[in-house]
Design a protein around this nucleic acid. Structure first.
Length: 109
DNA sequence: CGATTGACCGCTA
DNA sequence: TTAGCGGCCAATC
């Protein structure tokens, strides 16, 4: 994978994440699959970590595939707050999304 | 160069 | 159900 491919991958990831509507969430794994790199879910986190525009790209709507909230550049607490604000219910004791499958957004391409 | 490090995943015991 | 562990891939050391 050269720089050109990688750059395109980043753009695709940001586009996919931006398509997640308010009140819905997706997972690092789902993004990886949609981006054509099903085994590189860790890479998705890495890309989102240096998200150039956190305001535009709602990267807080991306959680772990097991339903737990996962990490966030500005702290897990902030991520939880943002999600709650959008109507996502979170079990604070185990940091898991309540009704995980119900609020899961199906990515389009 | 090789080793380590993440906003992770899935198998196995 | 949970914890441990190997695998994954690019960046960083």
């Amino acid at each position: 994978m050269n720089d050109e491919h990688y750059k395109r991958l980043e753009e695709l990831v940001y586009r996919l994440v931006s398509s997640i509507p308010e009140g819905k969430i997706s997972t690092y794994k789902d993004i990886a699959v949609a981006a054509g790199i099903p085994k590189a879910s860790r890479l998705i986190g890495k890309i989102l970590n240096r998200n150039p525009n956190p305001i535009v790209v709602p990267c807080h709507r991306v959680v772990r595939s097991n339903g737990s909230v996962g990490g966030y550049r500005f702290g897990t607490k902030m991520k939880v707050e943002l999600l709650k604000r959008e109507g996502i219910v979170i079990n604070e004791s185990n940091m898991k999304i309540v009704d995980f499958n119900r609020v899961r957004f199906k990515l389009i391409r």
